[in-house]
Design a protein around this nucleic acid. Sequence first.
DNA 1: GTCCGGCCTTACTAACCAGA
DNA 2: TCTGGTTAGTAAGGCCGGAC
Length: 798
Amino acid sequence: MEAQAATTQKMRKKGSLESMASGLTVGMAMEKSTNDAEPSKKKKKRKDKNKQDGELSFTTDRDSDRGARHIVWDNAGNEAVQDNSPESSRSAIPSAFGQARDDDGVEEKRQKRLEKKRRKEQKRQEREMAAQADSASVYEPLTAAQASGDADSQRSGATTQGAQAVEQGPSSIPGPSQTSRESPKKKKKKPKINHAEDGSLYRSNGLGQAHLSSQQDPAIEDDELAEDELSHPQSETVRSFSHAPERSTTRQAEPLSTSPSKPKEKRKSKKGSQVEVGSDHASQEGASSAAVTAVNAGASPQKLSVSSHQGIDKGKKRAAEPEDVDGIDSWQNAENSSRKRGRKKRAADEGHGEAAPAQIVLGQTTSNTDPTLEEHEINETEEEPISSKGRSRKSVVPSLAALTQIAQSNPSGSSVGRKTTRRGPRNETNALHSKEATIADAYGLRHEDILVEKLYQPHQLRWLAEGIGLEYKLGAFSKTEDEHIENALLEFGEEHGLNRDQTIDLMFNAEATKSELFGSLFRAATRSVPGRSNRHVRKHLQTIYHPLAHAGPWTQEQTEALQQAVASHGQDWVAVAKVVGRRRDDCRVRWRDQLTLKTTRPDSAVVKNKGTWTEAEMEKLRNVIEEVCRELSIDIEKRESIPWTTVSARLGGERNANQIYQKWCVMLDKGLWNESDDFMLLQRMSEQTEAVENDDITMIVLRDLQTDQWRFSPKTMRRNWQKLVKKFLDVDNYKTNFAANLAKLNGLRHLSAEERNKRALRSSPGRGVGSGRGKSRKGTTKGLDKKGVDTIDSDEEV
DNA sequence: GTCCGGCCTTACTAACCAGA
DNA sequence: TCTGGTTAGTAAGGCCGGAC
């Protein structure tokens, strides 16, 4: 690496593209042993492209979780392949698996038997652990030593995936030997360390959290727990206690809380008279600790009604909940319909059942008695939600019955999706809790069918990637993909006699989830974006097509409404969202990131949560991050692996996780941007053949452009791309005509600095594509940048 | 066991701001 | 005017539990 750095350094000094490219070729070649490879298909595509172009002097493979294989190109287009990765063996996996399957299913049967045996043994262990847990603490404080891999001390009873990950220690977490470049596509499962808001680490003992949490909270008396359990046998009460962070916070905060000895009253007081520490909202990022701080500072508890145990009374509250009169949150209602059904059932069981309101079907009011539809549909008639992507929501939403009727009445509606085995009888292959069973379940299906027809969880997809080489995409959906989906939705609607709005309504129709039409819709959408899984597509669509999405900045009225709603409803975000008229997540994030800090942390000389970072703060941040990463055996430069909430907590909540993440991104930038970085940016972008071919810059994950030696934050890269297209192409919208713009800018690279500057359409003194070292904004043209990298003048080039 | 949505955390981007 | 820094808004990743 040092040699590589030296090479890069040398290249920078020389400044020419040729030397840069060749230097990088060498540099990248040196990375072979450490870098992972992207899927071979993509690589081949790019290789072919490069050959055609005859321009790119090198290519290198980016990270992948599937091995390291690197191809280096010299300027003449000769290929030097170095394959020191397990990729070849990976590619052999399917055939090997197939061979096993070919043995007349004997192996399969044997696997099933083993699987059955494993399950039995697992259940037995769980029963034993449950028995032990009756008298044991649930969340044991996890010491740094334990967290960092004291496997022996953790093996006892830790059976959750998270605990297992911890047990694996450094081996399960990318170590320093790996590159810091890792695309979102190959995120590895993070060790499930429970990060308390005070920064302490906890792990679960692996039992059902719900059960355990209500049993084990030291702050809760046994009798009241029993009472709660009896009152709300399946309520979200349990869930509200099920998160380690809150529990740990509760524990840690006891000395600070106002009346730790009266947990029962605390839990029942929702409105302000009690500051609740240990919210059921793990994302409060210091909200709880902030609350404690505020209490200590004498802040008005009236403003701190962050009821940590809202869930405790949710069952009762729901039962007594008034009808949704404002009607704004009908879509949240739809989203929560599943839970609501349960609540309504419980409420009905408790004698608090809500009267089933009338149902509106395609504009007609009927005497519907389906309680699962009423809120959603009635509300739709009362208020028109904010449209999504310019879509104008109709004031009346057809019911599932109506949608189905439309589809069935359509001549082509006979093809309303295939028959599925959903809700069907259980069978052996449905036991998908193990990797083997998942692979067995998917075996025989085409990979594209696996992604479309199955609804595997993320970890199952990872298993399939490892087991049968399933390739799938993660990360942000590109503009192109969204367009494909949009077209697929239109086609689907056309096929089933639904207009666009009706098709989109189907996604959010609570009752529709039980219909074949619902599944068909998402299958159609998933098929339109190869490589995406059905599950990802569902989530994506239900995000971007949500009528309350893209609601824009918060107005003062909304903010006040949020504050009032939180004061009265606590962190029951569904209820809060109803009042405020924003999406549930909008409310939660708004509260978490801004209002909590601002309301509970008034400006003071001690607590600072906005503004420029001081040197002392940054130093403290570095130390805390190093500390956390050391404890968790995390490569410090792997941003995605750092638990920012923990870092935030250990910083005393002075900055929230988002602030810290953003700052860390910038702190990791390797030096100031100069014009050789323009070259590198163009080079790296040119390698994104899929994006180039599709003329879609949104296909590029900017972080993927980073290398060990060339790393800038996505923002820095984006802004410099914007700058280039603006200066040389006079293009304001950097997202348009990506391929053409890139080609034009590449064409400028071979010009001298002088020539390039002549072609600049918008002035930018001292700058030009590839004109070498630019003038530092700090006013120096030569010196050391942030990372101690020697910089030189641009004039030396050409 | 499967499907689905809830919830929390992380990541990214646009807009804004202040200083050179 | 340009630049880096910061904030605010939004999308995505992934785990979990309820309903069926």
